[in-house]
Amino acid sequence: MPLPFIPLIVAGAAAASAAVAGKKGYDSYQNMKETKQIAEQLESRYKNAYNQFETSRDQTNSNFEEYGLLKLEILDGSIKDFVNEFKQIKNVNFSNKAVTDEFVTNQDIEQFVLNIEKQVVKAGQVLTAGVASIAGGGLAAMGAVGATTTFAAASTGTAIATLSGIAAQNATLAFLGGGALSAGGLGIAGGTMVLGGIALAPALAIGSLIFASTTEKKLHEMYAKKAEVNTEVEKLSAAKNVMNQISSTTNSMKDLAESTNKLFMDYIYKMKSVISQKGLDFRNYSTEEQSIIHTNYKLAIIMRDVLNTTILDEKGQLVGNLQSVITAKKKAVTDLKGN
């Protein structure tokens, strides 16, 4: 007996519906699988880029702080020692051609000693208060900005506040964590803007697309998110390169300061020996001994120039021609080693 025609149609329709449902289910599964795969790849890529950037940022900040501390220690150490010894010498005259190749007036000498003595006093005050007291990235500011600028306050009582204030007003220092909006200036927001508006945390809401209902639309949204993440990764990479360049330059300045200071301390020792043996009247020194005093003076100038060299301008960017400055100062120190 033939089967009723209508039940067969119903059965066929049911089978077709099941096939369509199965196809949709499979497509949905595939969409979900692909969405998750893309999300995992994006999350991994972004986190890797962000972690690399964070490492560079932390290293840059650390380098600034180390160089800032070195500056303070040099000012409170060899520079202070030089001022104390050099000031005792009477009748200093750098006009003898056997001693100097350029004429230096007594007024120039006195003004130079007076200026660096002010920095010595302020550096001593900061160190006496303790490095821990330099809040808000002040130590990093000391490393990134010239000593003259960081100690530009009217009185020694504001030296520490000045250091912290500079950190807040310098975009990169603020971005490194040294400044706060409450301290004035651009603050962290300004630092972020200068470095290209990169995200400060990996909060790209990738997960919301993974756990949402998986549809073709969500897969398209994940592809759009992929483009967004790629843009952020490029920004992180660019910012990392900026940090690495700043960090490298800071290390070069630190190395220059250390090598100059080493030679400077050697000549300060020689100057002390001259004073101990010949007294305090420059006129009683031999040509060689006068040359030792003059070399001390020249090294003090080089040391001052190195410590006063600014690495970052007020916009948080590397100052131009720093490498040429470093090269010139290295040559000047090398030339003095032969004396």
Rank of each mutant, 00 (worst) to 15 (best):
D305E: 13
A238P: 00
E65M: 08
P4V: 07
G207R: 09
A154M: 02
K262W: 07
Y269M: 10
D255W: 02
E228N: 10
T148K: 14
T250R: 01
S237L: 02
V229I: 13
G178I: 06
Q111N: 15
K87T: 12
G197T: 01
T128C: 06
V113P: 08
L209D: 03
I74C: 03
A123P: 06
K298L: 15
G143V: 02
Q107I: 15
A16Y: 09
A135C: 04
T128G: 09
K330Q: 10
Q119S: 13
E232N: 10
Q111W: 03
G187I: 03
I301L: 09
G316S: 06
S62T: 03
N339K: 15
P4E: 11
L176Y: 04
M303R: 08
K337Q: 15
K33V: 05
F282C: 06
T149I: 10
E66L: 13
L204G: 05
L236V: 00
A154W: 01
E234T: 09
K97W: 05
L280V: 15
Q290E: 11
M271F: 04
L204A: 11
F94A: 06
T60R: 01
K33E: 08
E289P: 11
K118I: 12
N96T: 15
K240V: 00
G279T: 11
L42E: 04
A180R: 08
F53E: 01
A238L: 01
T105R: 08
T156K: 14
D27C: 14
T172R: 04
K235M: 05
Q245D: 14
L219D: 03
K331G: 08
A39L: 07
G187R: 03
G185A: 09
L8F: 01
V319C: 03
